[in-house]
Structures are given as structure tokens and as C-alpha cells.
Design a protein around this nucleic acid. Structure first.
Length: 529
RNA sequence: GCCGCCUUAGCUCAGUUGGUUAGAGCGCUAGAUUGUGGAUCUAGAGGUCCUCCGUUCAAUCCGGAGAGGCGGUACCA
């Protein structure tokens, strides 16, 4: 869209965002905290590029010779398709397979960076956003999965979210058992109709936390009409199948409220419901076994749950931070065992004051098949991802993430145009002491303008050395923060100017020492290391 | 993708039953104040009323199409 006079209208592409210094500071703080936890767990960083060959990402459309619409793609000189990465897992699989001979195994690694998805943006959903992943490649046992869950919990705690999230855990093998139990079992590819139906049911399970029992029931049967009047077709199951699924989904949610021992948190003990109806099994996993325990794949899943449980409890995480939740499904493509998801447990209100369903801010699981696309031998892997942009968005909306502009530089005012060398010397002294500082580079025609500039930069102080000061060998330091506080009591401009709130004088050679004493400067120096 | 609502100044929003010069608050610029950021006062700049097509003597307003925004829903690695 060209504006008048042929000028180009400056427009941000939809789904993308510019980040201010305040945003960057907040994000960096989050990243540093996450990194510290991952490194403490023994993970090392690796970085892969934004672009990969599209076949690496596995996102070619099945019927056409071009990439999926959801990814940003372009063709190289030799017509090979390249795509912007849409997650950090597929590139890791490529990196691992390509460097198989030299990497330590198990390979424990973390990486953080932007990923891109070419799809409709939503609240907290952008087309470019940051993820922070950790993965263990080459470890098949549930210890690795249990560790992922604990590390997610530690990360959320480190971000100051203790008690405000839950890591929900499920297992694909248990879900497969559920499919058998309702007559939709069997390996993939038996018949296309069966695969489609299984897929449809899994998608509905994933919506349980959002739509609840009535919504899930409608979608499993005839279909559902949403708030805008749009209709989604149902999976067409019969009542027997639907009631078994609902039992499976609600088995844990019914008794969140009645669990109090720490052991019960991961694997809740079932009780009779207050009305006397319902459950009699002693715990969730036994309940699963009693319901459809003959299925071999399912039994494997329960074994993995039990192994994870013993480690999670022994390590002290059995206090409710990590919980079994049968409604966790995650992506349909590559997960093969345990799957996890981090959910925020507090309400999120958007800029317009509406309560928004925020959903998951991270998740992952075991993907034993992903590396096999590149190598013949089986390579088990498990990992998870935190949506940094998404989490930051949620925290900002909730006021849990600071949005303050970082402290600006000390501004040395230009009082006499022929003294710029002297002002620059002051700046150099401050910088040598690790203090952010600059000489005012705009039009110095009046001091007020220079102060206003410093104010806008959120500067801690300005330095004033006019002819009078220079002749006496002194300088004026104006503490802008103290001055701002004092200004609240002053309404008269004459008084404001004559009182010079926050201002004091000192000898020229005390510049660095006196500036360093200002609390805002000290805090900044400390923060910058 | 599908459904609904919305789009007027940099921002938040009034307004015109279709009629000459479309307004407010905040913000911005300048001045009161050429050595003091805030506050106050004064003045000023800033609009193809989202775009295109149609109806009309006349469209920011009515009709159609499109774009963008928001919300829901679908898909989701």
C-alpha cells in the first residue's frame, strides 16, 4: 500500500513484532534463567541455522512437489527447496545424524532461537517466535523422560512461577491402549478409515481441557457448534465408546481436589465420589490396568509411568508440580512414548480486559522415530520445548514480567560548544568505570532540551559543567530519579526551576566516584557485570 | 481454512438521517522560559474518515468486492 506522494507506508508484516529495549531486556532475563537450569542438568548448547532443506524438516506435501503451506519456503539456485525451521527438534535430528560419529552418546543438548510458522497469528501466537529446547538423544529409558519433566518444573520455578503451573504427563502407549479398548486399535495403516477415526478421536482428547465433557462428548458423537455459530463435524462414535473415553479423560480431574499426600500428586489415589458413585481402584495406574490391562502396548506405557513415578518422587518432585493427565495428546506426528505439557494455572487477561484461554506454554515428549529418517539404526530421543515468546506474552499480560525501560546512560550536557573535548573526556572516564555514558549529540541550543532527552532515555543523571563551574573546578550532578520524586510536591514552575530538585555539586575530579554512588547507576553496573 | 465483530489524527475514541470548513482527550512541535527534565498557559502541525468498484446532483456514511485488526473455531511440528 503506497501512501500519498508515492511514499511507502511503513508496515509491520502481520504476525511479526518489533521488540523494544524493554522487551529485549525482559526476554534476555528469561533466557538467562532457563539456560542456567539446563546447564545445571548437564546440557550443552548447540546452534543450527534458520534454514534447512525442506526434506530435512519433513514438510513436503504428500500429493504435490512443494512444501506445506505452514512453512516459509523458497527455492535455492539448484531448485532445492529450503524452509525456515518451524521448530528446533527436526534440525537437531539432522545435526545429530550428520555428526553421529563424533558426538557423545547420549547427546544432551539445549538450544534457543527463533522459529517461523506461516499461519494465522492469534493471541500470543506469532509467525516468528522464540523457543528454548532441551533434548537427550540416544537414551531409551524413562529416566530421561522423568528428567525432562523435572527440568521443566525447575525451569518454571526459576522463572518465578512456582505454584502457578502444572507439568501434565501422558503416554502415547496408554493412549494406544485406549484406542484398542474402544475397538479402534491396531497398527497404523490397517485401513485408512481406521487411521482417520483414530486421528479424529486423538484430536478431540486434546481439547478436553478447553471444551470440557460436553464439548468432547459432542465432538465424539455428532459434532459441535462453536460460539460464532460455526459447525465442526463429530467423530461418529457410539455411546459405549464415548462413555469409555469420558471415563478415561475424567478419571484424574475428578479427584484433584481430594488428593493431599505427596505421593498422590503424580499418581492420584482414587476415592469414592461424594455422592457415593464412581471409583474403587486404589490408584490411577491400577484403574487403567483394571480397565484394559490385557493390551501389551498399554502395559508398556503403564510400566513407563511407574518408572517415572518412582524417580520423580525420589527426587522430590512428587508434590503436584508433575501430574499424570490422560487428556495430554500433543502433536500427532512423531511422539512415541511419554508426552508432557506445561500449563499455566492462573487466568490470563488480555489488553482489552478479556479473559483468554492461554493453553500450553511448552511441552515435548519421546520421539524414537525422528532420527531414523536419517540413519538405519534406531535412535531413541526425548526432549521438550518452552515457548519463550508465548510465555513472555502471558507473563506480560499478567504483570508477572517487568516491562520497565532499562536504565539509560548518564548524559553529559553540552553547555559551551567550544568545550566538547572536555565533555568527551568526562564521558570516557565514566565509560572506563563501566558506567553507560554519552555526551549530548543533538542541537545543544538549550539545556532543557538536553534534560528532556535524558529523561526520555530513562537516564539516572545528567552532568552540567558551564563556564562558572569550570572556573571553580566543579560540576553539577543532577540525579533525575531523585528529582522526579521531589517534583511531585512542586506545582509552581519558578519554584521547580530555582530548587533544582535532585541536583548537587562536587569537584570535577569526583565525577566517577559521585556518579557511582547513585543507586540507579550502581544497580546498572552490577546488572551488566 | 471457516464463522462473527471491527477499521475516522501518532494513540484512545466521538460524529455526520447522504450536503460547503470532520471533532475531543492524550501525544507531538514551538513559545511563555537562550542554565534546568515534571506541572501550567498559549499557539501550531498532523486526516485520500482502510482500498477499489457501484448507486447518487452529491458517499467517510448506502451496496458489492478486497485488505488489515480482534475474537472464536479448524489445523498445529
Amino acid at each position: 500500500m503506497a501512501s500519498k506522494q508515492g511514499l511507502i507506508a511503513p508496515r509491520l508484516p502481520r504476525g511479526f513484532e518489533d521488540r523494544t529495549s524493554a522487551d529485549i531486556a525482559a526476554t534476555n532475563e528469561m533466557i538467562a534463567k532457563i539456560r542456567e537450569v539446563y546447564e545445571r542438568y548437564g546440557f550443552d548448547p548447540v546452534e543450527t541455522p534458520f534454514f534447512e532443506y525442506t526434506e530435512t524438516l519433513g514438510k513436503f506435501l504428500p500429493d504435490a512437489d512443494r512444501p506445506n503451506q505452514g512453512v516459509f519456503s523458497l527455492q535455492d539456485d539448484d531448485e532445492a527447496w529450503m524452509s525456515l525451521r518451524y521448530d528446533l527438534t527436526a534440525p537437531l535430528a539432522r545435526h545429530f545424524a550428520e555428526n553421529f560419529e563424533t558426538l557423545p552418546k547420549p547427546y544432551r543438548t539445549y538450544r534457543q532461537g527463533y522459529v517461523f510458522r506461516n499461519e494465522k497469528p492469534g493471541p500470543g501466537r506469532f509467525r516468528q517466535f522464540m523457543q528454548f529446547d532441551a533434548d537427550t538423544v540416544g537414551a531409551a529409558g524413562p529416566e530421561a523422560d522423568a528428567e525432562m519433566c523435572m527440568m521443566m518444573a525447575d525451569t518454571m520455578d526459576a522463572l518465578g512461577l512456582a505454584g502457578k503451573y502444572v507439568v501434565r504427563v501422558n503416554n502415547r502407549k496408554v493412549l494406544d491402549g485406549l484406542m484398542s479398548w474402544i475397538g479402534l486399535g491396531g497398527p497404523n495403516g490397517t485401513t485408512p478409515q481406521l487411521d482417520a477415526k483414530r486421528l479424529a478421536v486423538m484430536r478431540v482428547l486434546d481439547k478436553y481441557d478447553r471444551l470440557g465433557v460436553p464439548g468432547v462428548k459432542a465432538l465424539l458423537e455428532q459434532g459441535r457448534t462453536d460460539e460464532s455459530g460455526d459447525f465442526s463435524p463429530g467423530a461418529g462414535l457410539d455411546w459405549d465408546q464415548v462413555s469409555r473415553i469420558l471415563w478415561f479423560l475424567t478419571i484424574r480431574s475428578e479427584d484433584y481436589a481430594v488428593t493431599e499426600s505427596s505421593r498422590a500428586a503424580f499418581n492420584p489415589i482414587l476415592r469414592l465420589k461424594p455422592d457415593g458413585g464412581g471409583f474403587f481402584e486404589s490408584d490411577l495406574l491400577s484403574a487403567f490396568e483394571n480397565a484394559y490391562g490385557s493390551d501389551a502396548v498399554f502395559l508398556e506405557g503403564v510400566c513407563e509411568f511407574r518408572a517415572m513415578e518412582s524417580m520423580i518422587e525420589a527426587a522430590g518432585y512428587g508434590d503436584g508440580r508433575i501430574r499424570i493427565d490422560p487428556s495430554v495428546v500433543r502433536g500427532l506426528e512423531y511422539y512415541t512414548g511419554p508426552v508432557f505439557e506445561i500449563e499455566l494455572t492462573f487466568p490470563v487477561t488480555n489488553d482489552k480486559g478479556q479473559q483468554v484461554v492461554f493453553g500450553s506454554v511448552g511441552g515435548g515428549g519421546r520421539y524414537d522415530g525422528l532420527v531414523s529418517r536419517f540413519r538405519k539404526e534406531p535412535v531413541p530421543a526425548t526432549g521438550f520445548s518452552i515457548g519463550v515468546s508465548r510465555l513472555a506474552h502471558a507473563l506480560k499480560l499478567t504483570g508477572l514480567l517487568g516491562n520497565e525501560q532499562p536504565t539509560g546512560p548518564v548524559v553529559v550536557c553540552v553547555m559551551d560548544k567550544d568545550q566538547k573535548a572536555g565533555y568527551q573526556k568526562m564521558v570516557a572516564e565514566l565509560r572506563a568505570a563501566g558506567i553507560r555514558a554519552e555526551m549530548y549529540l543533538g542541537n545543544p541550543k538549550n539545556v532543557g532540551r538536553q534534560f528532556a532527552y535524558a529523561d526520555q532515555r530513562n537516564s539516572p543523571a545528567v552532568i552540567i559543567e558551564g563556564t562558572q563551574e569550570r572556573e571553580q573546578g566543579i560540576i553539577q550532578i543532577k540525579d533525575l530519579i531523585a528529582g522526579k520524586q521531589a517534583s511531585r510536591a512542586i506545582t509552581d514552575n519558578e519554584q521547580w526551576k530555582s530548587e533544582r530538585p535532585g541536583q548537587f555539586e562536587c569537584r570535577r575530579d569526583e565525577l566517577v566516584a559521585r556518579i557511582s554512588e547513585l543507586p540507579a547507576v550502581a544497580a546498572q553496573v552490577k546488572k551488566r557485570g
